[in-house]
Design a protein around this nucleic acid. Sequence first.
DNA 1: AATGAATGAGACTTCATTCAT
DNA 2: CATGAATGAAGTCTCATTCAT
Lengths: 218, 218, 218, 218
Amino acid sequence: MSTAEVSTRRRGRPRATDSAETRRTILDVARRLFAERGYGGVTNKDLAAEAGLTSGALYHYVESKLDLYCAVYEDMQEKIYERFQKAEASEQTFIGKLEAVLEEAHDLNHEDPSLARFAGIFRSVALRHPDVRKRLGPSNSVGDRFFLNMVECGIRTGEIAVEDQDLVREFVMLILVGLTEGVSEDPPRHRRAVDSIIAVLHNRLVRPLPPDPSTRRL
Amino acid sequence: MSTAEVSTRRRGRPRATDSAETRRTILDVARRLFAERGYGGVTNKDLAAEAGLTSGALYHYVESKLDLYCAVYEDMQEKIYERFQKAEASEQTFIGKLEAVLEEAHDLNHEDPSLARFAGIFRSVALRHPDVRKRLGPSNSVGDRFFLNMVECGIRTGEIAVEDQDLVREFVMLILVGLTEGVSEDPPRHRRAVDSIIAVLHNRLVRPLPPDPSTRRL
Amino acid sequence: MSTAEVSTRRRGRPRATDSAETRRTILDVARRLFAERGYGGVTNKDLAAEAGLTSGALYHYVESKLDLYCAVYEDMQEKIYERFQKAEASEQTFIGKLEAVLEEAHDLNHEDPSLARFAGIFRSVALRHPDVRKRLGPSNSVGDRFFLNMVECGIRTGEIAVEDQDLVREFVMLILVGLTEGVSEDPPRHRRAVDSIIAVLHNRLVRPLPPDPSTRRL
Amino acid sequence: MSTAEVSTRRRGRPRATDSAETRRTILDVARRLFAERGYGGVTNKDLAAEAGLTSGALYHYVESKLDLYCAVYEDMQEKIYERFQKAEASEQTFIGKLEAVLEEAHDLNHEDPSLARFAGIFRSVALRHPDVRKRLGPSNSVGDRFFLNMVECGIRTGEIAVEDQDLVREFVMLILVGLTEGVSEDPPRHRRAVDSIIAVLHNRLVRPLPPDPSTRRL
DNA sequence: AATGAATGAGACTTCATTCAT
DNA sequence: CATGAATGAAGTCTCATTCAT
């Protein structure tokens, strides 16, 4: 209503801005918002406002909202797997590697919760946005290969029987989905979840009872 | 309009003369569509068309789209936990109960994939619709109590150490999230995932190596 | 600013409207506006306002602005060629038919100037809107056939030499383009233009001089 | 930036060091693009890119897009009528002049199709941009005078009856509109169209039948 | 109870224009 | 002179919701 709005910006080029920096900001803002509210729950206006721009200006950096989403996805994949790879390389056994990766996931989730949240929500976004699927394809090749390698290591060390390898891979992917989609927004629960998985792997969490006829159903 | 309605039914889909029946149809249609395309991906018109009405008529049965979504959620919770409870009651040990529940989850997923898919997607919908959260509250009270009971059983039987109960609960919820969000749309993977969890619980999947200095990094 | 705007319409269904009538109104309004301002010069809002609707409501009748444009085009083609055909059929000679068609064009232009104006502008719209071209294809088959028939009649009557038929067709199309694009918005000029064409055809307008050396360039 | 610019030209397009030269480039580029895609179909960015600048730099040479459009128009008028005048001056009779002008139009269309195309499209652009109309006034004063002169010549030579002069002028303008708007993008048709006009003027194209009662409808 | 025309808010996107650098 | 980041207005289109019939 007044002419002296809080953040009226001039018309032309702003003072001292760095294009690359703005793009980085947009990507980070987008990851956070998409992580919090999914794809359809974020408008261009929201994105622009949080990045300190108008919605039209977004189009200097991305071709479309979809384009931005995909860019965020790729950025995230890169960040996550770089860290995962480092963690994985630091250990020699399957269990060691898996624990290291889980700990790394926990650290990552602590450092920047939006990464895991985005990853967690991504699956359901892709599921119902054909455009996203089309653009990113099967795409998880990076992740697939990563876990494949880990499992192969387990086979070499004798931790995993050859005939179990598919089950193991499925299990690993399952718990990672559970971590990213289920508890990434609650750090203490995330910590507990990681610990529970490690405990299970070491057979410390649940002790199957010996088959005792008196406790069986009659 | 016709007077010849008493004795003979017309061919084709009968008019849903019964209000409750129509509501049931709407709920089922809505679960399927929401499961497939998420909240924003389904329009009232889609919903109405699949239920054999027009979009205006929807409002005789639900107050709003959001209202419908919540109703579907509650309906789903009810359906799932009714089945889970039956499964759980059929076994006496924690592991027995958990296995029974996982098998039930698998059967459910087979019978009506939309249930699990809806559940899987629900989290991200709730995440970006404060109204949904408000309406459904902390919501998981039913599920929480359910798993609490299971874990308490495990403590009684000695399968679970008292101090591990939180870890176990976290683990159970984690794998259920993983199952619903990760693999519910792919039956063979779902099967494999269930098997992998059971194998892990029986300590059959991964064998930790004895600490062998020769395999450690120097 | 006041709550009692001039034409506030209620929210729901309006009193007594006829869907077909509204569609007809939209088509007529669209033809007029497109004729006056071309394709890009007309906004959905303009169209809706002139038809007494909001821009969203347009989409009950057409799928898109392009769709509307094409519908107007087809409507126009139909209207024009129906009249042209009647006029053409009333005469037996090429010149007779052509004069009848020109007079009909004049009458049409008088009755509803938007028809000819739309037709006149159509060419340039199609030229630079690939979508329009794609939708309407070569399309002028109706018109082409129409003039082809007229020329064939002239050949039969001996008015036109067989080897001149292409020239004649080109000439006929040329003058029709000239009439629709050049003078359709100015009735007296349109009248004069029609008269001039008829006079030319009867060799009454310009008398070539006999080749007189004294008037030649030296 | 380089000091080695004095003596040697770099390969490729030289930087348009001269302001006037750049303006000339912009005008030519603009005519071509406007001719191909109309006013709204061309963005300042397109224009700038094709002229080897950025969109901001355009504003050093023109005040606005509209301004540029008008400048192109004036430039085109000048170019066309300069050529037409030369052609017209080379003949002494009305028909001779008209033929010469038509041939010149054909040559022009061959040399630089964008001229005629621009002229052809201009009408519809002006139609929906009141600003253009305002800036360019009744505009055709140049053309009007030009054709007026030609017709007066025809009166002097006796080719045209005084009372027919308006009709003749209308006819000439009609065929020029037809040529520019109808067939300027199709050289063979353009050729044919020119030939057909010349044939008509020489009364060689269509032979009116003598009023023969036997061919009349009864 | 049902229809479907209509609203109105808001989404994504484009683009002429401005102006700090 | 030139760049290019940014604005802001406008455009096309979608959709939940309302309501006369």
